[in-house]
Design a protein around this nucleic acid. Sequence first.
DNA 1: CTGAAAGCGCTTACAG
DNA 2: CTGAAAGCGCTTACAG
Lengths: 333, 333
Amino acid sequence: MAGVSQTTVSLVLNGTGSRQRRVGEEVANRVLRAIEVTGYAANPVAQSLAGGRSSIVGVYTYEPVFPASAGNFYHPFLEGMETEAQRLGIDLLLFTSMGEGETGLVSGTRLRRLQVADGCVLLGRHSRPEDLDELLRQDFPFAFVGRRAAHRGTVPFAAAAYADATEAVVRRLLDLGHRRVALVNGFTGHESVEDRARGYRRAMASAGRQPVTFDLGDNPVGDLVDALLASDMTAAVVSADLAAPLRLAALDRGLEVPGDLSIARLGDPETPEPVPVDWTGFLIPRREMGVRALQIVMGQLTPGDDTELQTYIPCTVVDGTTVAPPQPAAGRR
Amino acid sequence: MAGVSQTTVSLVLNGTGSRQRRVGEEVANRVLRAIEVTGYAANPVAQSLAGGRSSIVGVYTYEPVFPASAGNFYHPFLEGMETEAQRLGIDLLLFTSMGEGETGLVSGTRLRRLQVADGCVLLGRHSRPEDLDELLRQDFPFAFVGRRAAHRGTVPFAAAAYADATEAVVRRLLDLGHRRVALVNGFTGHESVEDRARGYRRAMASAGRQPVTFDLGDNPVGDLVDALLASDMTAAVVSADLAAPLRLAALDRGLEVPGDLSIARLGDPETPEPVPVDWTGFLIPRREMGVRALQIVMGQLTPGDDTELQTYIPCTVVDGTTVAPPQPAAGRR
DNA sequence: CTGAAAGCGCTTACAG
DNA sequence: CTGAAAGCGCTTACAG
């Protein structure tokens, strides 16, 4: 013992907040020295129970994190989170115990178990709005990786700036002389799809062009190519996973890419494409999204912090060889 | 309330052990119903503090888990652990906060933070013996992925059965007619290398052949090929990472594989080889090692459990095209 | 500036 | 078979 009370030790360790009470410098040093000698470290479990911080942030995923099948969807996000967690001196608690029978975060013991952590990062393509509502209602610090909307309230998130990136890509096509540029979606009803569509419309509107959207639906990709040509499209901006199949379908029909049809890819797919293509388009800043999501959670734990709750992270636009100026109409087959 | 005390609820939830006290069936049902209605779930933090279980198992790695650089070394192990964790209804706490300055588990607050978890799985090529000693001394439930030895005491582990697998591969070469089969190590001083060497020696001894081991050291791989030929070796069993370079060096010297030299690979490397080769050798059961490590930890938490503390998991031996019967000496260049 | 005391939500001997 | 009470190791009002 350094001759002080438990209270004082706690105060020394937990630092000095704004108008918090300070411990005498001399006493503080005495405590610090004793800590060094004894190798004392606070029991995080007790800290947590007593209302303090556990320095643990939960990671809740709506799908298994390490499935051989799903490739490495979560990998880059986790890499960012791990790096940031290390920097911040916190640990990550993986909530993997959501089994087949579970129905999300709200049900059962899941939400309760979250409380071990100071906050939580959520990831997953298929989130459940009721989970977000509940988290918001409980005032539990969290952040989603990717933009998510809730029925009411502000969902904190670290999202890719899909709108801006798509706008930039479409503008590039327009600048090359394309007049008929289509947006092609693989699926709909997701925030990321909406964001891309917004950027697309913005670019088209500012150039006075008519926006036209094609949805894949359940049809074969080949039909999509036919539809694009039937509409006299000279360029298409395509969601990440659909770009490669669309290009192959076009080549299959004897078209040249970008000669007959320019294709820009709106994001890089989770799994690397079997045949590498030098795409024009943009990349999703997955790693940085992970970093930022963690920062947003931690920001909510720090009173004076001014970290934005909803942040958009710029995507890197890349110039490849799948986009070229449109051919004169005569040249098209 | 169901009209019972906190004690009773706790008893109902924590199940009935061996000679533990039982709660009246009628009362238990009443409690269960109330739990269902209210959606009650015990606070794991409090459970943990009170000496109960937190249903959290820590994962401590000696290198970052999600580095883009290191490929996916940990991925298959984690996949197994995640699957098993899900099955067991527990969560995984990633101890990622070991930064640059940290010096292992024992130092600083790391060991203390482990206590949030009921037990811990350790992974990493460069473990620290003092960590194992300390964990053993504290009687903290843990398991290593891969065989590890400590100064004293039994280190629980889930290891690949390298010795058996190597023995099987070498025996296969001997059965094909090879008389001079070399063991080639990329590095030394690791348990996994020792295990392979043991299997190699066993197979050679039982066939009455002289075991010869070549260590790469800091020399170029080409020298190794020369040394193998100078010693009239017709086959080599090679550690996972060295197999591909050795084969290339042999091809470079105008040799044929397996014509002039049979090469068997002792394990599959962490990162897929750039040029796929149809190797003869064995595969490391990484996924299953993760599963078993978790089972070993959980076994220590269950009084009557008879899970082996040290388990070896069989490797899959595969027949490829890098091994063939030895050529008559005349045919060798 | 410092300490005694209550309380976080459980589990577990200990009495009935 | 059941409950009152202590205690896990902290934090944080509340008094001095």
